[in-house]
Simulated scan of single mutants.
Amino acid sequence: MLIDRFWKEMESVHSAMLSVGDARHVPMSPYARKEDRAIWFITAQGTALVEAITSGQSDASLIVTGESNIHARIEGSASLVQDRAKLEELWNPVASSWFDGIDDPDIRLIRLVPTEAEVWLTSGGMGFAFELVKSKLTGKQPDTGEHFSVTF
């Protein structure tokens, strides 16, 4: 099932560009959780993303590209969530670099519930390079991988 493939591939994503409402896309660390049907982000009070959600905006866009075999445009709805157990589950050395510990009062959790995604799965950098070379030798277009859309 394509939705299962989406969640499996998203597990390997460690950086993406998130936008909410009229807040511009910014780099964030996504934490995809199939069991929650959500992608989580740890951010701080006062950021443009938090301010957009606080002002009632919820339309979110996540752009994934570059580091793994998945490239995607994900649309959905974002909300702020206060959930200490979820924060403890997600907490990691990357998050701790931005805050004065897990009890920092500025920490905010954003929950992105996807509504649709357009996904490209590739064989990675070396696989793509091979396809480019092969296309030059055979005169055929390179196989750039699988492409599909998902509605949640």
Rank of each mutant, 00 (worst) to 15 (best):
E75P: 01
A60M: 09
F148T: 10
R111C: 02
G139T: 05
S58G: 00
F148G: 14
V50Q: 08
E9R: 13
L87E: 12
S58N: 09
F130S: 06
E118D: 05
S79A: 04
A117L: 08
S15Y: 15
L80R: 07
T54V: 07
P27Y: 13
E51I: 02
V50C: 11
I42D: 03
D4L: 11
A95S: 12
G124M: 02
N92G: 08
L90F: 09
I3M: 15
P27M: 04
Q57T: 04
G139W: 13
W7K: 05
D104C: 05
G145A: 12
S135I: 00
V50T: 12
I110N: 06
F41H: 05
K134D: 01
E51W: 06
S58R: 08
I70F: 00
T122P: 10
L137G: 10
D83I: 11
H71W: 06
S96T: 10
S15M: 14
H25T: 03
D143F: 01
L109H: 10
L112H: 01
I39M: 04
M28A: 06
I42P: 02
H14P: 01
L49T: 07
Q82P: 03
L2M: 08
Q82I: 02
D59L: 06
A78W: 05
D59H: 13
G66N: 13
E75W: 11
D83V: 07
A60T: 00
V64K: 07
E88K: 15
H71M: 07
F6G: 04
E9S: 12
V81H: 03
E89I: 05
V26F: 07
G46K: 12
E11Y: 01
D59K: 15
G145Y: 15
K136V: 00
P93I: 07
T54P: 07
T138L: 01
I110T: 01
A95C: 13
V13I: 12
I3R: 15
D36L: 05
T115V: 03
R5P: 07
K140C: 00
T47D: 04
